[in-house]
Design a protein around this nucleic acid. Structure first.
Lengths: 227, 227
DNA sequence: ACAAAAGTGTTTCGGCTACACCCATGC
DNA sequence: GCATGGGTGTAGCCGAAACACTTTTGT
């Protein structure tokens, strides 16, 4: 054993995940009904305990794969929530992470088993404890990120149109974005690759599909949307 | 007792503080020699345990006031460091905070007692464990913050000249900044108040002192330095 | 006289904004 | 032919950057 040096009180440490998805033009968030006391049955973020031999990020990945069946999910640490009274069930220090998921890739059965449901972000219910604040912080972070680098790789299908990408941005920022300017800005980053195929579902004329190109040199951080 | 609900392994949780100061045109950082094993005598960040009934921020504030004698210090959470092997003395989850301090306001005796020393940021020694990475993250955060809102209120004396403020920015970004443009940009934010008094130490002509005005409406977030 | 910072002014340049405008096509 | 999105072009505006220039005063 290594635990020979430090003598001090210990804490329960948890992770809570704000899971963003995108479907039918809407930003969504995956929530579940709590399966134990306190606040059993209430809507909450997906969470889990941090184990003895894992990082907090690994714990969050474990929670996400337990619920969605997915590995290699985009995850970013938001912040620690540590008010001693934040959880009426006991003193729990929680690290919030946000994730981005392409909804159609999830394991629908698993999600159902966990009594989880995708909510449109603007219509999400009240959450337990400080989870509302966590969601707020995560959304802020998502906006900052989306404002400075192109998001969508983890939220959209492999191939998508510029319209779909713009609708995603409009959903994230909850404001309309000029179509022409958005197109020019996004394409100027040179991280999207035009495909031969066209999408004719959303328009008469048909729009070319694009995909993220995976050349690592192209991870450019430049302002996309001003906040 | 409230600890009746959850059964799960617990963790030691610590805070580590990256304490920035500014003195004689240099960005500085407060480090201390470790007073216990492992890595006793090596340079490290100031840290402490998170108690049973305090938030991580309160723990960081406690650590800071123990060492500098100061209350009400500017503190911002950086990130959680939780590699199970990050501390050879045991499994410790650590939350990193950065702080900004006006060095002359500290309790010099207390600092000495803690075997702590202000190091010029660019000449700091190797630190224990993952503390180097913590400092790096904190510095990144500081630059982002300074790039979007005017810092200095916590690092500079009550009254200061535009030159002193610019020197601070140059120290934070470690790059020269155009004097004329910086002056115009900073004053355009309208959060500095010109005083009647002049400083004649740094120039022949003498420069007016300024101070932060404390009207809460003036907390403007606008880009000051492009990163 | 000179140096060094204070303080102001000016020119240029690039990017963002707000549009206008043509294209393609299913109804 | 009309509505809808696709896609391109452009004039105007604004702020950043670069830098010239004048002021002040101790040495």
């Amino acid at each position: 054993m290594r635990e020979f040096v430090y003598k001090h009180s210990k804490h329960l440490v948890a992770v809570d995940c704000i899971i963003f998805g995108y479907e039918k033009g809407q930003l969504k968030i995956l929530l579940s009904r709590r399966r134990f006391q306190p606040a059993k049955g209430k809507w909450s973020l997906m969470g889990g305990w941090v184990g003895e031999n894992e990082t907090v990020k690994k714990a969050a990945e474990r929670v996400l794969s337990e619920i969605t069946g997915l590995k290699e999910i985009y995850l970013e640490q938001v912040s620690v929530f540590s008010d001693p009274a934040r959880d009426p069930g006991g003193r729990v220090i929680s690290v919030a992470f946000y994730a981005m998921i392409y909804i159609n890739r999830q394991d629908t059965e698993l999600v159902k088993q966990h009594r989880a449901k995708w909510w449109p972000f603007e219509k999400k219910p009240e959450l337990i404890f400080d989870h509302n604040r966590m969601v707020e912080s995560a959304h802020e972070r998502l906006k900052v990120k989306a404002g400075y680098e192109l998001i969508g790789e983890d939220l959209l299908p492999e191939k998508f149109t510029i319209l779909q990408l713009r609708r995603l941005y409009e959903a994230v920022f909850q404001q309309p974005i000029d179509p022409g300017n958005f197109r020019k800005k996004v394409l100027s980053l040179k991280i999207l690759e035009k495909l031969a195929e066209k999408n004719t579902d959303d328009s008469r004329k048909g729009a070319y599909y694009y995909q993220f190109n995976h050349h690592p040199e192209s991870i450019i951080k430049e302002r996309i949307v001003k906040i």
